[in-house]
Design a protein around this nucleic acid. Structure first.
Lengths: 235, 235
DNA sequence: GTCGGTTGTATTGTCGACAATAGCCAATCG
DNA sequence: CGATTGGCTATTGTCGACAATACAACCGAC
């Protein structure tokens, strides 16, 4: 009988309840199951997930830091709500972040040459986006789109940039979750991202930055217009 | 006898203990009393401030969100530590934020003309910086410097920008608290900030952005060099 | 002497109960 | 009928105790 101890065990550490709770909440919000503006109470969540209020509280604080919910003292917590102005804020910020990220990545590739790990990673995520677009699955396309942008940020080697970008990214995900009609035509999406990757792989700093900003301004304007229209018809 | 009810009462609400605790911690860190890298334990803090661990925990979460401390599970909390790489991250980020903020403010002034509330506020903070520089008080100069930059961000009318900028700003404050030798000569500081304000007041978007970025790159390089030297002599 | 396991201790993770607060609704008074 | 006041309820704020975990120091075997 083979000794069980021989197996390599990567992470046996039981995930603490607060992490599980945070994950559950995050999934619920990002999947659209818990809609924007929804009110969350500690007690009900605690009962629902079978943990104590202290655990839920920690999870809520975590989610707050991720930009998914916010708190009103003595009143409650609610899923981040989403106005057209918020969309403008999110995309102007994201534009700044991606400009910085693209600049750093392009500089790295310029220094390391076009055959380094960075270029390989960029090829990989672009191929993944192409595959998703070919499949036509809107959820998969959106996921690949986010992955591509995140890959660029991660390659920048800038911890704080990655963290703060994550906040913005997750809030944008809330929009996408609430209506996947926001995902454009597959061919158009693929076509939009190719120049971004090309500029980076060429190590052209200025072009990379310009392309990234342009992409975000287009996407931001699209979403903002969509929301403004929705607000007008609803209000 | 005048009716007491006539008096306007702004905020009588007793500050909750968790807010007081967070304030106390923040003061301690930003004043340098609690140095970077210092370890904070919930129990000791609770005893020291005369509140329960739950209250301290909430305060710690708040400070975490502000970027002043971070947590290692099952181990403890510690004041954000400060390497030369961290300085680079902070100033590259701040540069992006101020570029966006300056762009928005310059656009506003360009649209509203040079006699709006924005210009008045800019004049005000620049005058305050001049007064501080004349006084020669290093702490006052540093405070006025921060105020000026924050004023620009606040004028941008971008809530998320202001929030995320705040995180970066507070972390930079930790450096300044740990050594006020980082504050340069009063005349130099004043001279550096004048073109920033002038560009904004002129409503020149491109010049404002360029000036803001340049200022941050200079300051960032200075701090990074200082820390790299300190690390070399210490390590 | 060195390596591996074991034990001990400091610290956070989790829990349930009670206190304080905000917001609502009805009763009351003009 | 309107405005104000008072209480009621839902929810977070705060507390102390116990459980789980990580880390370090110690001990023993080889």
């Amino acid at each position: 009988m083979t000794n069980v101890g021989e197996f390599k065990i990567r992470k046996v550490r039981k995930l603490s309840a607060e992490v599980q709770a945070a994950d559950a909440l995050r999934d619920g919000i990002l999947s659209g199951e818990i809609p924007p503006g929804a009110r969350l109470t500690e007690i009900r969540m605690a009962e629902q997930l079978g943990v104590s209020r202290a655990t839920i509280r920690t999870a809520f604080h975590q989610l707050t830091q991720e930009g998914l919910i916010d708190q009103i003292p003595y009143t409650g917590w609610s899923v981040m709500s989403l106005s057209a102005h918020d969309a403008w804020e999110l995309y102007t910020l994201r534009s700044s972040f991606e400009a910085l990220g693209s600049k750093l990545v392009a500089m790295r590739i310029k220094a390391a040459g076009p055959h380094g790990a960075e270029s390989a990673r960029l090829n990989s995520v672009l191929a993944a986006l192409k595959a998703a677009c070919d499949s036509g699955d809107r959820k998969a396309i959106a996921a690949a789109d986010f992955s591509l942008h995140r890959a660029i940020i991660d390659l920048a080697g800038h911890r704080r940039l990655a963290e703060q970008y994550g906040e913005v990214e997750q809030q944008i995900r809330i929009y996408i979750a609430s209506s996947d009609s926001l995902v454009a035509e597959p061919e158009a999406i693929l076509k939009q991202h190719i120049p971004i990757i090309e500029a980076l792989k060429a190590g052209d700093v200025e072009l990379s930055v310009r392309t990234a900003i342009e992409h975000n301004e287009q996407e931001g304007a699209k979403l903002e217009a969509h929301l403004r229209q929705a607000e007008a018809s609803a209000g």
